[in-house]
């Protein structure tokens, strides 16, 4: 996940923590947010819904959502 953030925002030193929000990262607007979610989908092999994407407010919530997605997937697919 950190790699996806670093590549997308071109910030090799970016460190993720649960309280990190779009305000803290240069260029993290709604378009970039959608790109980020699509990159995560491809990287992690999961699918997001629009209502899940609009609800997120920080990296902690994003991590929880991804964990939820993995927990819901049948064993072996994650």
């Amino acid at each position: 996940m950190t790699d996806v953030f670093r590549t997308l925002f071109r910030q090799p030193a970016l460190e993720l923590h649960d309280d990190l929000t779009s305000e803290d990262v240069a260029g993290w607007d709604s378009l970039k947010h959608v790109s980020l979610m699509i990159h995560l989908e491809q990287e992690l092999g999961i699918k997001f819904h629009s209502h899940e994407v609009v609800r997120l407010t920080n990296v902690g919530e994003l991590r929880s959502l991804i964990r939820e997605k993995f927990a819901r997937q049948p064993a072996g697919q994650a």
């Binding site: 709604s30 378009l31 959608v34 699509i38 629009s50 994407v53």
Partner: peptide
């Protein structure tokens, strides 16, 4: 929130 996001995430090809 109510048009752009559903358009992206309902589209299997994710054409932003």
């Amino acid at each position: 929130d109510y048009l752009f996001m559903p358009l992206v995430f309902l589209d299997p090809r994710r054409r932003i």
